[in-house]
Simulated assay, not measured.
Amino acid sequence: MPDRIGRAGECCVRQADRPAVELLDEQFPTARWVGQRRGVPLVLLHRFRGTIDWWDPEFLDYLAAEHDVIVFNNVGIGYTTGEPRDSLEGFAEGAIEFIQARSCAGRPARMAAGRHRGPARGPAPPRAGEELEAIKHPVLHANGVHDVMIPAHASYVAVQHLDSATLILYSDAGHAFLFQHGKKFATEGTNFLAA
């Protein structure tokens, strides 16, 4: 199991024999690669305005046991340059720019958003449903039943618009289910990616 270094709130993670690597360039000066540089890396996307320091180091450790993991600050977030993106499309474009800028150390990257964030209030609006229906690859969608920001019902409605979706709801969790169930969710995510 990887060793964790640092204090609460820091994302300073290292494998026993390989420290996290800072991937620095002008546009994306802060990113971390956690793992032993094997296989296709898992690039994690954070919420809008979320920085790499918001990732739970223990959760990253769990994921890094099976996959190399890359976390980064999107365009205009944290210490990155540029204007923050104001749409899901813009946010995705920023992630693609990050991946293309470094080709993830010469390897193709697999992008996974550990959770699709649906609308904050009520079921998905019609346009969102149409956008979800356009997704044809498998999707893992997780939430806490007691999430007041993104109600569990919105998660249920969202997966109804997907051809191949797995929904995980944690009955004892709210918005921070990743902190409460980091190891369990990392296992679920690893199993999902292996399928």
Rank of each mutant, 00 (worst) to 15 (best):
A105H: 08
V148P: 08
E10L: 10
V157D: 15
P151R: 01
S171F: 04
P2K: 04
R110K: 05
V21Q: 15
Q160G: 15
I96F: 11
P19L: 08
G6C: 03
Q15Y: 04
L140H: 10
I5H: 12
L63N: 09
A65H: 12
F48T: 05
T80W: 01
A124N: 12
C11I: 05
L63H: 06
H67A: 01
L45E: 09
M149A: 10
L63S: 04
P138D: 04
W54N: 12
A195R: 15
G114I: 13
R18M: 11
G144D: 05
Y170V: 07
V13Q: 02
E66W: 13
G90W: 05
F185D: 09
S164I: 00
G189F: 14
P84D: 00
A105M: 12
R18K: 11
R49Y: 09
L23P: 00
A142S: 12
R117P: 09
R18G: 03
P29D: 12
E89W: 11
H137D: 00
R32G: 09
I168V: 14
G90T: 09
T166P: 00
H181L: 03
H153Y: 08
R32V: 04
H67S: 10
G174A: 05
Q27I: 14
M149T: 07
R37G: 06
Y79A: 15
K136P: 00
K136F: 00
E133S: 13
F59G: 11
E188M: 07
R110D: 03
V34W: 07
H116P: 15
F72V: 10
S171A: 10
A134I: 01
D17K: 09
H67W: 14
G114H: 12
P108D: 13
R117Y: 09
F179P: 01
N191K: 08
A120R: 14
N191E: 12
Q15C: 13
G129T: 00
T51K: 08
R85L: 11
F91S: 07
T187Q: 13
L162A: 02
Y62R: 14
D53C: 01
F177V: 06
G114P: 12
P108S: 14
G90E: 03
R107G: 03
G106Y: 04
T80Y: 05
L193Q: 10
A176I: 06
A194D: 13
C12G: 04
